[in-house]
């Protein structure tokens, strides 16, 4: 009898010690795991409430509706891991969309229009990166200028919405590759490719490791002889490119360019990245985590539309969730910073 009791006690002890080791060893994964937990809870809750929520069609739509957000989140993850921030992504996305739509409507062939759409964002990103790195401008202010610049330029191109009738661009959205009831559009494939590329670059290249090193401590990274300057400029270029790609995807998704698109999207993206477990102080974060964050955001949005409630609840709930996650992050950082 006593032996049984001791084994139970032992087991409890071993479980708690396992948990302790796990949490201290994988502290940086915990927020992402928490996001996965929240996502599963949301899906299960919605499924039990509505009965038909976790259906292939609905889940496929989740990827389709949030493809642009996912692409933006990948770029933002790179920037935030270096302890920077990019406020310009929403405006860059709108500018790309309206620029592309206006070029196509004036008869510019699509094989010229699309490269211009993608190339210009990298240029804005380059400008911001140079401001941050070589002129020591705070990322917040430099990208704020980028926000104003791209938004204003979007209105310079056109003050009203322009329809896109280019078949090859609409093809990105209209085509459905089906597998049973599941389907995926070319835009969804683009989003997944971007996530996969981002994750691979972050974890398996010298560039990715430098990004993490800069976020951990820029000074140390420099002393180690890593190329801090080039990497910091590069992350803004990447984020700008992602903004452009998202603009292309959004244009295909909505079938039009509109200069008011993406107002406030930069904040959604930051929220999504933080919920996905990336630390705003830099140095920790995962591209795949940001993808989970996007799914959490998208699920909240579609749950609210299932319930027929006001869409303004989305931002209230996302705000609350953001708060919970930053408090959790704060606790984790405080724990791991404590001298052992």
């Amino acid at each position: 009898m006593t032996t049984v009791q001791t084994t139970t006690a032992d087991r409890v002890a071993s479980v708690t010690s396992f948990l302790r080791t796990f949490t201290s060893r994988y502290a940086s994964v915990l927020p992402t795991l928490a996001a996965v937990g929240v996502l599963l809870l949301l899906l299960m809750g919605a499924q039990s409430r509505f009965g038909n929520f976790v259906s292939p069609g609905n889940m496929s739509a989740l990827l389709l509706d949030n493809a642009y957000l996912m692409i933006l989140a990948v770029g933002m993850t790179f920037v935030i891991v270096t302890a920077g921030i990019d406020l310009s992504v929403g405006s860059v996305m709108a500018f790309t969309g309206i620029l592309g739509a206006s070029m196509l409507s004036t008869g510019v062939p699509v094989y010229i229009a699309v490269p211009i759409m993608l190339g210009g964002g990298a240029t804005i990103g380059l400008l911001l990166g140079v401001l941050v790195q070589y002129f020591n401008v705070q990322p917040f202010i430099a990208t704020l200028a980028g926000l104003f610049l791209a938004r204003g330029l979007a209105y310079v191109v056109s003050l009203s919405s322009i329809r896109v009738e280019e078949p090859s661009l609409l093809w990105l959205q209209a085509t459905r590759f089906r597998l049973g009831d599941w389907y995926i559009t070319p835009t969804g494939i683009i989003a997944i490719v971007v996530v996969a590329t981002g994750a691979l670059v972050m974890h398996f290249t010298r560039f990715g490791r430098t990004v993490y090193a800069i976020g951990g401590s820029e000074q140390s990274a420099r002393l180690m002889g890593l190329n801090v300057a080039r990497t910091k400029v590069m992350v803004y270029v990447i984020s700008g490119f992602c903004g452009r790609l998202a603009g292309l995807v959004l244009t295909a998704y909505s079938g039009a360019g509109y200069p008011r698109n993406g107002i406030g999207t930069e904040l959604d993206v930051i929220a999504v990245v933080v919920i996905g477990g990336t630390l705003l102080t830099g140095g920790r974060g995962y591209v795949l985590g940001s993808m989970v964050g996007v799914f959490v955001f998208g699920t909240i949005k579609s749950v609210i539309s299932f319930m027929g409630a006001e869409q303004s609840w989305t931002h209230i709930i996302v705000g609350a969730l953001l708060l919970v996650f930053i408090v959790v992050q704060r606790a984790i950082v405080a724990r791991s910073d404590r001298p052992r």
């Binding site: 926000l147 104003f148 610049l149 204003g152 330029l153 003050l159």
Partner: peptide, 8 residues
């Protein structure tokens, strides 16, 4: 609407 360019 275009004034942000100047502010930027």
């Amino acid at each position: 609407a275009q004034s942000p360019v100047v502010f930027a």
